[in-house]
Amino acid sequence: MIKTSKSLVILLLLLSLFLLNSCNSKVEENFESVIIDSVIDGDTVRLSSGEKIRIIGINTPEKDKEKLGKEAHTYVKDLIEGKKVYLEKDKSDRDQYERLLRYIWIEIPKELSKKEIETKNLSAILLKKGYARKYTFEPDIKYENIFQEIENEARIEETGMWEINKNGTTRGDKLNVQLQF
């Protein structure tokens, strides 16, 4: 009887490990690993192939035209240029300028919780720092609610662009100047 119990425990442990790995594989299979060749702007990067990526979900101040534009560009450059990151597609493949539309992750998340998103998703990191505002369009809205929550927190705390101007500093701010709850 004891032998059967040990075998059963071992079988259950192996099954648990298999299921855990299967769940992680499901999350990981949604990501593509790439190296960022250069940062064009706070919300646009280039791969070594020349392919441009427009980061989904945010708008950062223009590098040479708006307050905090240079800071947003430098922050993104220091964080990901020349480094391995993970791309995640939402619904659309490209924008009207033929840039790839992707979320950029510093690390693959273990789960899609707010904590994981705001510490590993580049859009969320920039929103939290006040270097970006939420800028989402149908159908690419997978993280829209979390991004809005993070932006609202940055506004309330007057972080980054929200310290300079309650309405932000990007051109997109003219579209929506009130907090959304």
Rank of each mutant, 00 (worst) to 15 (best):
I2R: 15
K3M: 15
T4P: 00
K6Q: 08
K6Y: 10
S7Y: 13
L8N: 10
L8I: 11
L8V: 12
I10S: 07
L11C: 15
L11V: 13
L12H: 03
L12W: 10
L13Q: 13
L14I: 14
L14H: 00
L14F: 10
L14R: 01
L15T: 07
S16H: 09
L19F: 11
L19K: 08
S22T: 12
S22D: 15
S22M: 11
N24H: 13
K26W: 10
V27S: 05
V27L: 14
V27K: 08
E29I: 13
N30E: 14
F31H: 04
F31C: 08
S33F: 09
I35V: 13
I40S: 04
D41N: 11
D41W: 04
D43N: 08
D43K: 01
D43E: 02
T44F: 02
L47V: 03
S49F: 12
K52N: 10
K52D: 11
K52T: 12
I55N: 06
I56S: 06
I56K: 11
I58M: 09
N59C: 07
T60W: 04
P61C: 03
K63T: 06
D64G: 00
E66C: 06
E66T: 06
K67W: 04
K67C: 05
K67L: 11
L68N: 05
K70N: 14
K70G: 11
A72D: 01
T74Q: 14
V76H: 01
K77R: 05
E81K: 13
G82C: 09
K84W: 09
K84E: 12
K84Y: 04
K84F: 14
V85T: 10
V85I: 15
L87I: 11
E88Q: 11
S92I: 09
Q96M: 05
Q96N: 11
E98S: 15
R99L: 02
I104L: 05
W105P: 00
E107D: 08
E107G: 00
I108T: 04
I108C: 03
L112V: 10
L112S: 07
L112P: 00
E116P: 06
E116I: 09
I117N: 07
K120V: 02
N121K: 02
S123E: 06
A124S: 06
L126P: 08
L126C: 02
K128H: 04
K128R: 15
G130S: 04
Y131G: 04
A132I: 01
A132T: 02
R133H: 07
R133F: 10
E138A: 13
E138V: 14
P139D: 02
P139C: 02
P139Q: 05
I141V: 12
Y143I: 05
Y143T: 06
E144R: 07
F147M: 09
F147N: 04
E149L: 05
E149Y: 05
I150M: 09
I150P: 03
E151D: 08
E151C: 04
E153H: 04
E157Q: 07
E157L: 08
E158P: 03
G160L: 03
M161G: 07
E163W: 12
I164H: 14
I164K: 15
K166F: 15
K166C: 12
K166L: 13
N167Y: 14
T169F: 02
R171A: 09
N176T: 10
N176P: 01
